Amino acid sequence: MRIPRIHHPEPLTVGAEIALSDDAANHVGRVLRMSAGQALQLFDGSNQVFEAEIVRSDKKSVQVKVLSAALDDRESPLHLHLGQVMSRGEKMEFTIQKSIELGVDVITPLFSERCGVKLDAERLNKKIQQWQKIAIAACEQSGRNRIPEIRPAMDLEAWCAEQDDALKLNLHPRAQASINTLSQPVTRVRLLIGPEGGLSADEIAMTAEHAFTDILLGPRVLRTETTALTAITALQVRFGDLG
């Protein structure tokens, strides 16, 4: 069996005995049915991996001992901040999961004129917590040892107005530029992906006022979740660590 990778929310040190978080303990003890003496790999977001061994496992808790630590940097040289106008249902979860597998560092959920998601503050906060758990699971699966940040949701214009020295990109079906025509080198990108109905004319004009460059992915119209992953992949191939 492949050694499970488990995120631990607090800093780890070699030689320490720790209790896994409730979610991790449930997965290791109840789902995987692992027992004392079996191996785990832990990571705490510090870009290290920690080899560990289960000391005690029961239905309520799992205790492990940290045996060793090693730096394991799998982060792309391209820092990507995804501004994603929120999509309905599982589409947003899919976008978050796959964009993190592809190397995105920060995700900000956005509201726009045509955003189809309407949530009160309490439900939105629960969504953010759920999306952060999806981010952690994506790191466990993909081998990343830093946890990308899922920021609180914010208005599109406020996000566009934030001060940032990154290259700012907005996907637009009638743009003249493409990712292949962007000048190198690029080390930081702020990527805006609009809603399923697209950005309004006023919003597109607003992004230009905040120095966003309109780019075109190709001749076909893509769904919002497809657009995000296609753009991230193309950026990683050109400026990051894919291909």
Rank of each mutant, 00 (worst) to 15 (best):
L235E: 01
F43W: 02
G83M: 07
L124E: 14
M1N: 10
L192P: 00
A153L: 04
D44E: 10
R146Q: 14
P11C: 07
E203S: 12
S99W: 04
D155N: 15
L102G: 00
Q129G: 15
R56E: 15
H8S: 13
L102R: 01
H7G: 01
S87D: 04
R74W: 08
R174A: 12
N125H: 06
S200V: 10
I3E: 11
W131F: 13
M1P: 04
A39S: 14
A121Q: 14
S76M: 01
Q63K: 11
R88Y: 04
A166E: 11
D214R: 12
E162M: 05
L169F: 00
E51W: 03
T230V: 11
V189A: 09
T181N: 05
A175W: 04
T95V: 15
F50C: 05
Q130L: 13
M92C: 12
K168G: 09
A36W: 03
T224P: 12
I3T: 15
T233E: 05
A36L: 01
R223K: 14
L110T: 01
N170W: 06
A211R: 13
L32T: 13
V66F: 11
E140N: 13
G89P: 09
R144P: 00
H172Q: 07
S46T: 14
L12I: 14
S87R: 02
R33V: 05
R56L: 14
I147K: 13
E122Y: 06
G218M: 12
R2P: 09
A231S: 14
V237T: 03
A201K: 12
F50I: 10
K59M: 06
L169G: 05
A228C: 13
N145V: 04
G83C: 09
G116N: 06
V62E: 11
K168E: 01
T213Y: 05
L78E: 13
A16P: 04
P109W: 03
G198R: 06
P4G: 02
Q236C: 11
P219K: 07
R5W: 12
H210D: 04
S112M: 06
T95C: 10
H172G: 11
S183T: 15
A211E: 14
V62L: 08
A201D: 14
Q41E: 15
A16W: 09
E203A: 06
C160L: 15
E75A: 13
E162D: 10
M1I: 03
R30G: 01
I18V: 15
K91S: 08
A16H: 03
K59N: 07
L216S: 07
I134E: 07
L67D: 04
V64R: 00
L167W: 03
A137Q: 09
E75H: 12
N47R: 13
P9R: 06
R5D: 05
I96F: 13
V189L: 01
S76G: 05
Q84S: 06
A208T: 10
G89M: 09
A158L: 08
K98Q: 09
M1A: 08
R190K: 15
G103L: 09
A175H: 00
M34C: 03
N47A: 12
V117P: 07
L217H: 06
A166Y: 05
L42W: 08
L78P: 03
A135Q: 08
E162G: 09
L102W: 02
I232E: 00
E51F: 01
R30A: 04
A16G: 11
P77M: 14
